[in-house]
Measured scan of single mutants.
Amino acid sequence: MTLTLTVPPGAKVRVRITNENGETTEIEVEPGETVTITLPAGSTVRVEVEVVDPDGRKRTETFTLKP
């Protein structure tokens, strides 16, 4: 399973991925970048995406991906 994120110009994104064992991976994606994350097959993962807009506003979306 893959997750692809494209960050709009001016925004910053931090992604936290937590697996079933509670292990967390965190990455930051710079403005204008596209990143593809390969998620472990057969695992349920929690993905938290934090977006910081150019004006400093933050918003966070959290979702769970199941196999």
Rank of each mutant, 00 (worst) to 15 (best):
28 E>G: 12
2 T>D: 02
22 G>K: 09
48 E>Q: 04
7 V>K: 03
9 P>V: 06
57 R>I: 04
50 E>T: 10
15 V>K: 01
34 T>Y: 13
6 T>C: 15
64 T>R: 00
7 V>Y: 15
30 E>W: 04
53 D>F: 15
66 K>L: 14
48 E>N: 02
8 P>W: 14
40 P>A: 09
12 K>R: 05
44 T>C: 14
12 K>C: 10
10 G>F: 03
3 L>Q: 01
50 E>I: 04
44 T>W: 15
1 M>K: 02
8 P>V: 14
67 P>M: 15
47 V>A: 02
3 L>P: 08
57 R>Q: 07
37 I>C: 11
63 F>G: 15
51 V>P: 00
36 T>Q: 06
35 V>R: 04
22 G>R: 07
7 V>Q: 03
1 M>R: 03
57 R>V: 07
19 N>A: 09
15 V>P: 00
21 N>D: 11
37 I>G: 09
49 V>S: 00
50 E>P: 00
25 T>N: 04
14 R>M: 12
40 P>F: 14
61 E>A: 13
30 E>N: 05
62 T>D: 05
10 G>D: 04
44 T>A: 08
40 P>H: 13
29 V>K: 09
33 E>N: 06
29 V>P: 13
23 E>C: 11
58 K>V: 12
34 T>S: 07
58 K>A: 03
16 R>T: 03
9 P>Y: 08
59 R>H: 11
31 P>K: 12
14 R>L: 09
27 I>M: 11
3 L>M: 04
40 P>Q: 12
38 T>R: 06
14 R>T: 11
35 V>L: 07
62 T>H: 06
16 R>N: 04
54 P>H: 05
63 F>N: 04
27 I>P: 15
45 V>Y: 14
32 G>W: 14
16 R>W: 13
67 P>N: 14
59 R>K: 02
66 K>N: 13
40 P>S: 13
10 G>R: 09
14 R>S: 11
56 G>S: 00
29 V>D: 15
8 P>A: 12
34 T>Q: 08
66 K>A: 14
28 E>W: 03
4 T>I: 11
34 T>V: 14
40 P>W: 15
36 T>S: 08
48 E>C: 04
53 D>I: 00
9 P>E: 07
66 K>W: 15
58 K>Y: 02
17 I>M: 12
28 E>L: 02
22 G>M: 10
15 V>L: 09
64 T>C: 15
47 V>Y: 00
58 K>T: 09
62 T>R: 02
4 T>W: 14
14 R>K: 05
55 D>G: 01
63 F>M: 04
56 G>L: 00
36 T>L: 14
1 M>L: 07
52 V>K: 02
4 T>N: 04
27 I>C: 09
41 A>I: 13
58 K>H: 03
22 G>W: 10
43 S>E: 15
23 E>W: 13
33 E>A: 11
5 L>C: 11
64 T>P: 15
34 T>H: 10
13 V>F: 02
25 T>A: 07
18 T>S: 08
61 E>M: 15
45 V>D: 02
50 E>V: 02
22 G>F: 08
21 N>T: 06
17 I>H: 11
55 D>F: 04
20 E>V: 04
6 T>W: 14
42 G>V: 14
15 V>T: 09
53 D>C: 15
19 N>M: 11
11 A>N: 02
56 G>Y: 00
58 K>C: 05
18 T>C: 10
31 P>Y: 07
67 P>S: 11
51 V>T: 12
23 E>A: 06
63 F>E: 15
23 E>G: 08
10 G>T: 02
17 I>S: 11
6 T>M: 12
56 G>E: 00
44 T>S: 06
38 T>Q: 07
29 V>W: 14
52 V>G: 00
50 E>W: 01
6 T>N: 10
55 D>I: 00
55 D>Q: 03
63 F>K: 11
33 E>F: 12
61 E>N: 02
62 T>M: 03
35 V>I: 06
24 T>D: 07
59 R>F: 10
64 T>F: 15
60 T>N: 01
60 T>F: 06
17 I>A: 14
7 V>W: 15
51 V>M: 04
65 L>E: 01
41 A>F: 12
59 R>V: 05
64 T>S: 01
56 G>P: 00
30 E>G: 03
26 E>D: 06
58 K>I: 13
37 I>A: 13
34 T>A: 11
11 A>E: 01
12 K>M: 09
45 V>G: 08
25 T>F: 10
39 L>G: 14
7 V>C: 07
54 P>D: 03
13 V>D: 01
28 E>V: 02
58 K>P: 01
50 E>M: 02
2 T>H: 06
12 K>Q: 13
36 T>V: 12
18 T>W: 13
43 S>W: 09
11 A>T: 03
54 P>A: 10
43 S>L: 13
1 M>S: 03
